[in-house]
């Protein structure tokens, strides 16, 4: 078993770790770094619960090897709020009951943030397709879509954001 020594940036901090060749980034985050915000729902890239951002693109961290993260920049749910101040998406998810059990929520928030940074004014259809890889079994998606729309409106500075 050969270990890789990896130096990467996670939520702006430089992080070093050793990992087995077959360990995924998700395994590393959860088991080696204690960052359990990303969840494993399937391990096959079909549910999106492990979504993190790597070099500006969202990925399923279960489909990235830990060794691949060397020199990359990773953003996870743990870096989304600034101290006590929640990101508008987090706040609107909370206020709009866009979560029930909450297991899919970190992945959806990370994915939604990437969408709004790329497209500040997405249509309902664009939001639905962007988030199609993030399964939610509790909500039926309605309140999730509305929360993303409301956060987007607030982030665009529209005062009538609910």
């Amino acid at each position: 078993m050969t270990h890789s020594h990896v130096t990467t940036t996670i939520n702006g901090d430089t992080v070093d770790y050793l990992c087995d060749a077959e360990e995924t980034l998700l395994d590393v985050l959860r088991d080696r770094l204690g960052m359990t915000g990303a969840k494993e729902g399937c391990g096959t890239g079909d549910c999106g619960a492990c979504t993190v951002e790597m070099d500006g693109r969202i990925v399923c961290s279960c489909l990235v090897l830990g060794a691949e993260a060397d020199g990359r920049s990773i953003r996870t749910i743990e870096g989304m709020a600034k101290g006590e101040e929640l990101h508008p998406l987090q706040r609107h998810f909370l206020e709009g009951a866009a979560l029930q059990c909450g297991i899919c929520t970190p992945g959806i928030l990370v994915a939604a943030r990437a969408l709004l940074e790329k497209n500040p004014n997405p249509s309902e259809t664009e939001i639905r397709y962007w988030l199609a890889g993030n399964l939610c079994r509790c909500t039926g998606y309605d309140k999730i879509i509305r929360a993303v729309q409301n956060a987007a409106a607030e982030m665009r500075g529209e005062s009538n954001a609910a």
Binding site: G45, D46, I58, C60, L63, V64, A111, W130, A132, G133
Partner: peptide, 9 residues
């Protein structure tokens, strides 16, 4: 191919 997440890879 796959989701937005998979598309990035």
């Amino acid at each position: 191919i796959g989701s937005t997440q998979v598309q990035g890879r």
